[in-house]
């Protein structure tokens, strides 16, 4: 039978061992977290549907103030806004995506987006969140997507257990510039 002192030594050793293992596991988790490539996304709704833009394409999210009509533009271009002295265009997604138009509410926002040298505001019904998601959670667009939306899709992901269609800002701008 081991002496009492030896028991203590054994117990200490066991606790040290356990502690070491716990720390090791924590470290492994942390390493996994660091290695997991993340991408910032802006989650928003238009016409009751949840969409996302890549965060790198969105420069700013603005409250909706007055949008001024510009003659001669297609209906998808809603007008211009004054952003600290600069004039920026504002486009609406409802028409492009074939979604029902919705009246502006206090939740409406304008995402000031930039891609391929073109900058414009995009009117959104609401911004749900701005969050980092793992790159591996982004899947290619599903083949059953609505044909109006398909043209502008960069991929699919999930957010709070909801499927989210990621829209490509560059494709949206290109479509309007054609």
């Amino acid at each position: 039978m081991p002496e009492k002192g030896n028991d203590t030594t054994l117990e200490t050793s066991k606790s040290d061992l356990l502690l070491k293992e716990i720390k090791s596991r924590q470290e492994r988790t942390r390493i996994v977290d660091v290695d997991e490539e993340q991408v910032k996304m802006v989650f928003f709704t238009v016409g009751g549907t949840l969409f996302a833009f890549y965060g790198s394409d969105v420069k700013e999210i603005l409250p909706v103030e007055k949008i001024y009509y510009v003659p001669g533009c297609p209906a998808v271009i809603l007008g211009v806004i004054n952003v600290r002295g600069d004039v920026e265009s504002v486009i609406g997604l409802h028409g492009l995506l074939g979604l029902p138009e919705k009246a502006q509410t206090k939740n409406s926002r304008i995402a000031l987006a930039q891609k391929n040298g073109i900058r414009s505001g995009i009117l959104l019904d609401s911004v749900e969140d701005v969050d980092d998601i793992p790159v591996r959670s982004i899947a290619p667009p599903i083949s059953t997507l609505d044909k109006n939306t398909k043209e502008f899709v960069a991929g699919e992901t999930t957010y709070k257990n909801r499927n989210v269609t990621i829209l490509d800002v560059g494709k949206l701008f290109s479509r309007i510039s054609i």
Partner: peptide, 10 residues
């Protein structure tokens, strides 16, 4: 200047 998306039309 008019924003590029608008200048395209106007």
């Amino acid at each position: 200047p008019m924003p590029p998306l608008i200048a395209h039309y106007t």
